[in-house]
C-alpha cells in the first residue's frame, strides 16, 4: 500500500512534469461537472420539472445557506462554496466507480485548504479593507497577534489533514476489509465509508470554510 500517488504520464517540458492519478481523476471530475452543468441547464421552463427541479432545489439550498451565514456578501462566495461542494462530493465518492479519490492525496487536499484560506483572506479584505484586515490581527488586543498568525497556519493544516485523513482512513479500511472478506461485506460497508463519510466530509469542509468566511466578513 502506498500513501503517494502513482504517476500516470509525464509532460515533456521543463524537464518533465509528472501527472499523477489525482490530477487525471480531477480532470475527469471536471469534465463530468462541465458536461452535466451544460446538459442540466438546457431548455429550462418557467414551471420546473424533473431534473430542473432537482438542480433548482440544490442551488436554492446553497444560496439560502450562504445568505443566512454571509448576509450581503453571499453572492460573491456562493459559487466558490458550491464548486468546492460539487467537486468534493464527487471526489470523495468516486471510489465507488473504481477510481482513486483525489482527496486521498494530501497534495490535493492541501491545495483545497490553501485556496479556502486565500478566499477567507479575500473576503476579509473585501469587507474591512486592507487596513481593517491588518488591524484585525491585533484585535481584541495586541497580545493576540501571535495566536492569529498561528491560526493562519493551523486552519489550512487542519482542513487539509482532516479531509485527507478521513478519506484515506476509509480507503485503507475498505482495502483491509476487502482483503479479509472479498464479497458482500465490502459492498455494505462502502455505503458508510464511501458514501456517508464522503458526503459528511464534504459538508464539514464547506461548512468550516463558510464559517471562516463568516468570521472574516463580520
Amino acid at each position: 500500500m502506498e500513501i503517494g500517488q502513482s504517476v500516470v504520464f509525464t509532460i515533456p517540458i521543463f524537464g518533465g512534469i509528472p501527472v499523477t492519478t489525482t490530477v487525471v481523476v480531477t480532470w475527469i471530475i471536471m469534465a463530468i461537472l462541465t458536461i452535466a452543468s451544460l446538459i442540466v441547464t438546457r431548455g429550462w421552463n418557467q414551471v420546473p420539472t424533473g431534473v430542473q427541479n432537482f438542480v433548482e432545489t440544490i442551488i436554492d439550498a446553497l444560496n439560502s445557506f450562504t445568505k443566512d451565514a454571509l448576509g450581503e456578501y453571499w453572492a460573491s462566495f456562493a459559487p466558490y462554496l458550491g464548486t468546492v461542494a460539487l467537486y468534493l462530493i464527487l471526489a470523495n465518492t468516486i471510489d465507488l466507480f473504481g477510481l482513486t479519490p483525489p482527496t486521498k492525496d494530501l497534495s490535493a487536499t492541501s491545495a483545497l485548504a490553501i485556496m479556502s484560506i486565500i478566499v477567507v483572506i479575500i473576503a476579509s479584505i473585501k469587507a474591512k479593507g486592507l487596513k481593517g484586515y491588518a488591524k484585525s490581527f491585533f484585535e481584541p488586543m495586541p497580545f493576540f497577534f501571535p495566536m492569529k498568525i498561528l491560526d493562519m497556519f493551523t486552519r489550512p493544516l487542519s482542513l487539509a489533514a482532516r479531509l485527507f485523513g478521513n478519506i484515506i482512513a476509509a480507503f485503507i479500511i475498505m482495502g483491509l476489509i476487502s482483503k479479509v472478506v472479498p464479497i458482500v461485506v465490502p459492498a455494505i460497508l462502502s455505503i458508510y465509508f464511501d458514501l456517508f463519510d464522503g458526503a459528511l466530509q464534504m459538508v464539514v469542509f464547506v461548512f468550516l470554510t463558510m464559517l471562516y468566511i463568516e468570521e472574516a466578513v463580520e
Binding site: T22, V23, S37, G82, T83, L86, Y87, S107, A111
Partner: peptide, 29 residues
Amino acid sequence: INPYTFIFTIINLVVLYLILRKFLFKPVT
C-alpha cells in the same frame, strides 16, 4: 506532498470554479 499535483489541483479548481460559475450558478440563480 507532490508540488506539481498541488499546483495542478489549484489550477484545476480555479478553472472548475470559473466554468461552473459561468454555466451553472450564475444562470440558475
